[in-house]
Amino acid sequence: MFQETVQVLERLLRSPSQIAKHCAADEDPRALFLASLCATLLGAAAFGGVLATSRGGLQLLYSATKVPLALVITLVLVVPALHGLAASLGQPLRLSAVVSLVLAATGRAALVLLALSPVVWLALDRGIGYHSSVLLAAACYALAGLSALGLLWHGVGKSLRGAFVIACFGLVLVPTGAQTAWLLRPFIGRPAQARVPFLRHRESSFADAMYLSALSSQGIYRAPEPNSHPAPRGATNLADDAEEAP
């Protein structure tokens, strides 16, 4: 079983089309399931741990737990959406095939995150600012997401219609994944912070925060709108609370 799992891990990276065929065919999914889940948990945990290196301490453990959690929650939420989109656009797939496909794609994305971890660690070690590290993490998630969508494209059929299904699915995946991660903040944590919370208060939305964070990284600070904080935590820039999303 171990040998088979390692082989599947290699195929996840090298030949997404073979993995997609495996998902669509009624073959034994155990090795694929195990390999994808291991890749998701280990890859995302490593990336989460690296993100927290600038803060250190308990944040390392929290981030290493929350990044895989965010990926798995997103996976669960978007599986029915891909099934519905594929069916209504004339590319119907069995639900079990969709589950395998999305799990494999998540595993692939986590492996990409694992590969990007040293780059992120180096950047954090070189002392890039908090807001720049948020944007760097968001760029890593975007790259990982694209590699996952590539595998899904093979799965729904590598055609114009398949590309349309994947484009529509991307419209669902991005806000869902971003909001899930937004709820599980913080991932990076600020060195100046005395206490490390496992979760922050619920506030505003991911899109607002990314926009303000991009402005803050360029030294442009804007105050949040008065009604955007139902539970105010002091007069801070909303961008200070912006963090990365898987």
């Binding site: 669960v76 939420l77 978007v78 029915p80 959406a81 891909l82 099934h83 519905g84 989109l85 669902v172 806000p175 869902t176 909001q179 899930t180 937004w182 709820l183 619920r202 506030e203 505003s204 939305s205 009604n227 955007s228 139902p230």
Partner: peptide, 15 residues
């Protein structure tokens, strides 16, 4: 199919 993702978004978005 969109219901689970929509539920997360509409329940957790404050505005």
């Amino acid at each position: 199919g969109l219901a689970p993702a929509s539920a997360l978004l509409v329940v957790t978005i404050d505005s």
